[in-house]
Structure formats: structure tokens, C-alpha cells
């Protein structure tokens, strides 16, 4: 259990570093969020007051401390009669949306979750299937097609693929809506219909990695001794494919976890192209309006999700391959009984 605790502690450390870096970067940047709140005309006194109200008058590490404290106990901005309360877990307060960041993120999170989970399911299913088929027909037409497609998809920029999908499938053919989001609560039909294009776009872009990994590892696995033994025992090839895929569970889980973490943090370009109000869109808007609390909050949530996904993959490793388990049984050292048998 100790290594698991060590991993959790390490993950927390990573989070702290990311957060500190985010603060440091925006503290160095030549933007002053208080300037917008101050309005026009803005006297130096008003600006100072706005800074104080928002909490931007202190050094960045002190702000980082308040941010961390606010996660646990909440935070109150302002002084005197003008008070804004932000309940725990408080990720900061946006003075442009006049809402706490936790609520802002909470509103957009379902959109991002819908995009991320669908995309990961689709890209891993397509990628693994394509890779396995290509490995089986190594050097054949299908193998070449898969390799060619994966080269294109791995090198194509997201905005090109996304825009192309919108123009061709939605605008020209009119098969699917070109953008927007429908709540799952309003029925799964419209919800899925609006998400098919984003899912397909992301799956096309990310699936190539799966196809390549599965193809090369499958070829390697099918040449190993255990595959030969299974073949010699008369097992059908499909069963041997399953053995090989089972041996790939470890790298594939890591890949899925990383992708899921990254997608849950928001996909900036895809959300923008398909007009999806997710975390990525929120981050993009906040960047253009210098909404520092939202930027920090979204970045924090994004890194939290990536770290959590990594942690989950790490903790799953010994379950997928018992050789990595701590305290697993080892071969008994030879005994007299064995040598005399």
C-alpha cells in the first residue's frame, strides 16, 4: 500500500508545481485584470481599490496560498459593505462573469465530459481494431491503407480536419448539425447527433497513435514464444490474437488514461470549431478577456484531471500485469526435495 501512497503524494506535488507555474506566468504577463473592473475613467486610486478588492495587490505566492486555502474553506472578496462570497471548493471568482469559477466550470463540464468519453471510446476502438487487423495482414493492402491513413491523421491539424468535417458533412451534405450542444437531459438523440462530428474528428486525429502502437506491438507479440506454443497446441489464431491483445492491455490503458485526462481538460480547437460550450471554450474566452481567475481555475482543473488519469493508470498497472505487483510470489529457491526428484 505504501507505493500507492507515494504515488498519490507525487501526484499532489505535480499539481502544486503546475499551479505555481500558472500563477507565475500570469503574474509576469503584462495584463492587469483590475483594469477592466475599474472601468473608464480609472483613477490610480480606483485601480488600487479594484486590485485590493480582487486580491491582486499581493505577491503571487500569497495569492497562490489564498487560492489553495479557498479550495478548502471558501473565500470572501472585498471589504466593508461590498462582499462577494465564494463557497468551498472555491476555484476563484470571475469579476467578468460575476460568478465563481467553480460554478462556471461546473456548467461546462458535462459538455466536455460528453465530448471526451465518446471520443476516447471511438478512437481506441477504431485504432485498436485497425492496428490489430493491419498486424494480422502485415504487408497486405489493409496494412498499407491503415499505415497511410494513420500518417495523414497524425499529421493533420485539428482545425483543418474539423472545418472539413463541418463543411462537407454538415453544410454540403446536411447530414448532421454543424455545431452547438444539446443537453443529455433533453434526450439522447439530439445530444448524440450534435456530438458525432466532434467525436469523429477527435477519433480520427488521435486514433492513429492507437493503430500504430497496436500494430507494431501485435507483430512483436505474435512472434513471441507463447504465441508459438499456443499455435503448436492447435489453438485458433483468433484466440492467439486475444492473448496478444491482453498483453497490450498495459500500454493501452496508459494511453487511454492520458487521452481521457487531456480531453477532459477541454479541447480548445475542437470546441471552438463545433461551437461547444465546454472547458476549452471557457479557457479560450478567458484568455482573450484576461480573466485571470478563470484561466487559473480551468488550468488547475485540467491538470487535476490529467494527474488523476495518470494516477489511475499507475494504480491499475499491477492489476493488469502481476509481475509488477509488490510482494508477488516468486519461484521457490531450489530445495533438496526438488533436486533429488
Amino acid at each position: 500500500m505504501i507505493p500507492a501512497l507515494q504515488r498519490v503524494a507525487r501526484s499532489l506535488g505535480v499539481l502544486l508545481v503546475v499551479l505555481a507555474l500558472t500563477y507565475a506566468i500570469f503574474y509576469l504577463a503584462p495584463i492587469d485584470p483590475a483594469l477592466r473592473m475599474c472601468g473608464k475613467p480609472c483613477s490610480p486610486e480606483d485601480l488600487e481599490a479594484a486590485r485590493g478588492f480582487m486580491g491582486f495587490d499581493r505577491p503571487w505566492w500569497a495569492q497562490l496560498g489564498s487560492f489553495l486555502a479557498a479550495l478548502v474553506v471558501g473565500r470572501t472578496y472585498g471589504s466593508g459593505d461590498v462582499l462577494v462570497h465564494c463557497a468551498a471548493p472555491c476555484l476563484g471568482y470571475s469579476f467578468q462573469y460575476h460568478q465563481d469559477v467553480t460554478t462556471l466550470i461546473g456548467e461546462r463540464f458535462p459538455v466536455t465530459v460528453s465530448v471526451a468519453i465518446g471520443a476516447v471510446v471511438l478512437q481506441s476502438a477504431l485504432g485498436i481494431a485497425a492496428g490489430a487487423l493491419a498486424a494480422r495482414r502485415q504487408g497486405g493492402i489493409l496494412d498499407r491503407v491503415v499505415t497511410a491513413v494513420s500518417v495523414i491523421s497524425a499529421s493533420a491539424p485539428a482545425f483543418v480536419v474539423g472545418l472539413l468535417a463541418v463543411v462537407v458533412v454538415a453544410l454540403r451534405l446536411g447530414l448532421l448539425p454543424s455545431g452547438g450542444y444539446e443537453n443529455l437531459a433533453d434526450g439522447p438523440g439530439p445530444w448524440a447527433l450534435h456530438l458525432i462530428l466532434p467525436w469523429a474528428t477527435l477519433a480520427f486525429l488521435n486514433g492513429a497513435v492507437y493503430a500504430r502502437l497496436v500494430r507494431s506491438s501485435m507483430i512483436e507479440q505474435l512472434g513471441l514464444d507463447y504465441a508459438r506454443t499456443a499455435r503448436a497446441a492447435g489453438l485458433p489464431e483468433r484466440r492467439i490474437d486475444r492473448y496478444a491483445l491482453r498483453n497490450l492491455a498495459l500500454p493501452l490503458t496508459t494511453l487511454v488514461a492520458l487521452d481521457l485526462g487531456a480531453l477532459l481538460g477541454g479541447t480548445v480547437i475542437t470546441e471552438r470549431i463545433f461551437g461547444l460550450p465546454g472547458l476549452g471554450a471557457l479557457l479560450l474566452d478567458a484568455t482573450s478577456t484576461a480573466d485571470l481567475p478563470v484561466i487559473v481555475g480551468t488550468t488547475f482543473v485540467g491538470s487535476l484531471l490529467i494527474v488523476l488519469a495518470n494516477l489511475a493508470a499507475d494504480l491499475a498497472r499491477p492489476l493488469l500485469d502481476r509481475r509488477l505487483a509488490v510482494g508477488g510470489r516468486r519461484p521457490a529457491t531450489p530445495t533438496t526435495q526438488e533436486t533429488s526428484s
Partner: peptide, 15 residues
């Protein structure tokens, strides 16, 4: 036919 190969440690899928 039954078959036995050289490397017993690698004759079965490790997982």
C-alpha cells in the same frame, strides 16, 4: 501432436 519448446519461462502468456 504435443509440443514442448526450449524456454519454459516464455512458453505461456505472462499475464
Amino acid at each position: 501432436v504435443g509440443t514442448v519448446f526450449q524456454e519454459p519461462g516464455q512458453s505461456l502468456s505472462p499475464v
